[in-house]
């Protein structure tokens, strides 16, 4: 029951970046298309899960004074692993995400969960928390990616990493004029702002 709760809170109650306003940079940068958002999300899930587990294991050994430095080293290690794996197996995605893969190191969500949760809870709970927040983050990225790609290019491009399964769906037919604004930088900001607004409206409705 406890573990399920730790997992599910990341899917709505504390879903980043909407409820926890953290990790905005990758959210804005890599959500031009659905497949980029999904890839980024999977990378974050991996790093968040591994770092949460490792930090939870080490939580009683790490001296509190230098804990942040230790967390960063742990996170950085897993980020390097992700980077190397992606370079080897999904080179195209690696190219698309570019600088934002090493930037997972400084993604506040990862560090924030390490400090706020993994350093105080057991291994299983931390794993559930990391997975939950990671999946929540991935969900947000895919939703945002889908909206921006659909409106900006009129397509939805799906590609499961590490496999050959890929497909590009054309949504609106040949007469659709792409709304290029959505895939540019301003579109990212405004789209995210509007989604946040939507979340607030839903929250208000639930309350009343």
């Amino acid at each position: 029951m406890g573990l399920v709760r730790e997992f599910t809170k990341g899917l709505w109650d504390e879903i980043p970046p909407f409820r926890l306003v953290l990790g905005l940079c990758p959210t804005l940068a890599v959500t031009k298309t659905l497949k980029d958002g999904l890839g980024m999300g999977l990378a974050v899930i991996f790093v968040l899960l591994c770092s949460n587990v490792l930090i939870s294991i080490l939580r009683n050994i790490i001296p509190p004074k230098v804990r942040i430095a230790c967390y960063i080293v742990v996170i950085a290690t897993f980020v390097v692993i992700v980077e190397l794996v992606m370079q080897a197996f999904t080179y195209e995605l690696y190219q698309d995400l570019g600088i934002f893969i090493p930037l997972i190191v400084v993604n506040c969500i990862v560090l924030g969960r390490a400090e706020a949760f993994a350093s105080k809870n057991g291994v299983l709970a931390s794993a559930a928390d990391g997975l939950g927040i990671g999946v929540g983050f991935t969900l947000s990225l895919t939703v945002l990616g889908s909206i921006r790609e659909a409106l900006g290019c009129g397509t939805l491009s799906l590609k499961i990493p590490f496999t050959d399964i890929s497909h590009v769906y054309n949504l609106f037919g040949p007469s659709f004029k792409p709304f290029a604004f959505m895939v540019s930088a301003p579109g990212a900001f405004i789209c995210l702002g509007m989604l946040l607004c939507l979340m607030n409206i839903i929250g208000n409705l639930k309350k009343s």
């Binding site: 306003v21 930088a185 301003p186 990212a188 900001f189 405004i190 702002g193 607004c197 607030n200 208000n204």
Partner: peptide, 22 residues
Amino acid sequence: PQVLEGTAIGLVTAGFMSLAFL
């Protein structure tokens, strides 16, 4: 508007600034 208060309006404003910088 109450639903836009805080980060939401901040993001929308950033969007318009970004548009200007374009």
